[in-house]
Amino acid sequence: MPAVYSLYIINKSGGLIYHKDYGSAGRMDTNDSLRLASLWHSMHAISQQLSPVAGCTGIELLEADTFDLHCFQSLTGTKFFVVAAPGTQNMESLLKHIYELYTDYVLKNPFYEMEMPIRCELFDINLTQAIQNDRFALLGR
């Protein structure tokens, strides 16, 4: 059973710009992943409205019956979220690391257009490595 089931990156307007699956059961078609991404974008915004205290920045962790969803929002509004097995630790640092890879291999790529789907080979390679290292780190524990 993989620790990380899938990764989504959505731009500041809620459009899905990157999606990778690492072994969920059942196929999710492209339309569904696009819908889920924009649904998450709205839920994130609504959760800020319902806060009883000022200064809420949206959902960071959603605990469902069969998975945990960890979300990280960058200062520019890009959201990164991973679907992981319940109780998986260190997802915050994994998300920060993915953000680092995004700034290095996507934002610094002169051919990348902002807010558009990510198609960068180097990003793919380094991301796969990061997820794999994370899996090994989990096995070692």
Binding site: S47, Q48, S51, P52, V53, A54, G55, C56, T57, G58, I59, E60, L61, L62, E63, A64, D65, T66, F67
Partner: peptide
């Protein structure tokens, strides 16, 4: 599949 909680920086539901 349902959910039992979510957490933001200011509250937990």
């Amino acid at each position: 599949c349902s959910f039992h909680s979510f957490r933001t920086n200011t509250y937990k539901l």
